[in-house]
């Protein structure tokens, strides 16, 4: 080993009395995910009842434990032991490829024109570019079931809106910088809206609640208005939807 051991990865950083931040990587990369999901699974079995929560993200895994059952140093030792033997998962996330039927249209994707203008593409090219790639879920956050996916084609890169919208309708498909997402619930949001998916992204009655998990693969499939409505999609235009 060379270099400064204090900066070597992976490393554990204090995240309060009952948490360790496991920093595995420096940069965002799809190749990070099978390592992060593998460590998350192993923490579940190694910590058992003493595990409170796990929050995987682009380059890290936050491990929250019960500080009555486990001291911070014992928790640290458990994680360190797991890291020594860690092998990446063969399948990331659930190993599924999700196809999200998406109605790309200015009525439900009011930023299509803005993105076209910003990128110098036609609207049709923007749609084609966004729907032709398979994306990876890097993290869930912001709202229940909200999946940060990427990376989108660099030609599509577009900054967030200067002023976020107060309410983005459920199912809205959006891009910002090199990432894409679909809004599981109506929330405020500053991403560029391209269309709407009929997929139910978050369902409290469903086993596992969230359609998408960290590591999953996702494709947006362009569908017609008729097909979108047939699948239960809501075509209420953006203005009326608020």
């Amino acid at each position: 080993m060379t270099g400064n051991p204090a900066n070597a990865l992976p490393r554990l950083e204090s995240a309060g009395l009952d948490g360790w931040m496991v920093r595995l990587f420096e940069q965002i990369d799809e190749a990070n995910l099978p390592w992060i999901t593998a460590l998350a699974r192993q923490c579940e079995s190694a910590f058992g009842d003493a595990l409170v929560d796990l929050v995987p993200s682009y380059t890290t895994l936050l491990v929250v434990f019960d500080p009555v059952r486990l001291s911070p140093s014992d928790a640290r030792q458990k994680i360190t032991d797991l890291l020594v033997e860690l092998e990446p998962d063969e399948h990331m996330g659930t190993g599924q490829v999700h196809e999200l039927p998406t109605f790309y249209d200015p009525s439900v994707g009011p930023d299509l024109d803005r993105v076209a203008e910003h990128t110098g593409m036609t609207v049709a090219e923007v749609i084609d570019c966004h729907s032709s790639k398979t994306y990876r879920v890097f993290a869930l956050g912001f709202a229940p079931g909200f999946a940060f996916m990427g990376l989108i084609d660099p030609r599509l890169e577009c900054p967030r809106l200067d002023t976020p919208r107060k309410k983005v309708p459920v199912g809205s498909v959006a891009i910002a910088a090199r990432q894409t997402a679909a809004y599981p619930t109506a929330t405020p949001g500053g991403w560029n809206l391209l269309g709407r998916t009929s997929a139910r992204l978050f369902d409290r009655e469903r086993e596992g609640f969230s359609l998408l998990r960290v590591g999953d693969e996702v494709r947006f499939v362009s569908v017609s208005r008729e097909e979108f409505e047939r699948q239960g999609g809501d075509t209420t235009p953006m203005e009326a939807a608020g």
Binding site: A15, G16, Q27, I28, V55, P56, S57, T59, T60, G141
Partner: peptide, 10 residues
Amino acid sequence: LISEGINLGG
């Protein structure tokens, strides 16, 4: 930072 989990009290 690249977004990461935040614990209570952060």
